[in-house]
Design a protein around this nucleic acid. Structure first.
Lengths: 115, 115
DNA sequence: GCTGTATCTAACCAATCAGTTAGCTAACCG
DNA sequence: CGGTTAGCTAACTGATTGGTTAGATACAGC
């Protein structure tokens, strides 16, 4: 079964290495070597992660001499946020109303409560 | 490497079958058999998916005679939403501005653009 | 206790994943 | 030109995933 776009996005960001790469890219474009530097794994391993991110549309790649700089692409993650948000909004309104979680969500401290 | 909680949550919801199960559970508790009904796969396969969801803390299980009803748990997903939202919020506010800036820098001075 | 229903475990299998090393291509620089 | 650097592909490996079937377990009702 070829996976749908949402599954692709979510499994791409399910990996901590790939999330770290994305966060690094929030600081701006970076080359493969720069992206690989903080990790202990080999360059080809990073290449594979980049390929996954690119396949999910989360990054795009340029060309600059022998560099292939990576940059963030926002849309797929925005879609994922849409799905999850809708999901959790439903939860907070109908399911967990009993233990009063709603306000806490609205006031932006997602770690504050335990069930 | 034992995966962190966020990775656990995200990879749990990266599977379309598991997302469908979660959405079904928005209608209320359900037994394993009920959850398995819409799918073409075997009951043990569903059990495994449920185990993944339970391991990620996304569902919890009760006991009612020979039934082990499943119900949603909100917290882990809320954490995930928090992470992704923060991420995409950054994108929506600063990345788009940064975009144009980077492009301009790149075309003006091809090696000087890392933050 | 016996039977049927619901669920889980065990063992297995094929496919995918995440990493490696080795070797290749392409671009820059002397 | 030759050497260096950046990045990629290929081939391999071990671990994980997602499914199967067969059999075990727990409980309800008769």
């Amino acid at each position: 079964m070829q996976p749908d776009r949402l599954s692709l996005t979510l499994s791409a960001i399910a990996d901590p290495t790939r999330r770290a790469i994305l966060m690094r890219l929030m600081d701006g474009e970076a080359s493969v070597k720069e992206l690989a530097a903080p990790f202990e794994m080999s360059i080809p391993a990073i290449c594979k992660h980049l390929k996954v991110l690119e396949g999910a549309g989360l990054i795009s790649r340029g060309r600059n001499a022998q560099l292939r700089p990576c940059r963030l692409e926002a849309q797929p993650l925005r879609d994922a946020v849409g799905w999850i948000e809708e999901f959790s909004r439903f939860w907070d309104t109908s399911l967990n109303r009993l233990d009063g979680l709603l306000e806490r969500l609205q006031s932006a401290d997602p770690m504050a409560k335990k069930n």
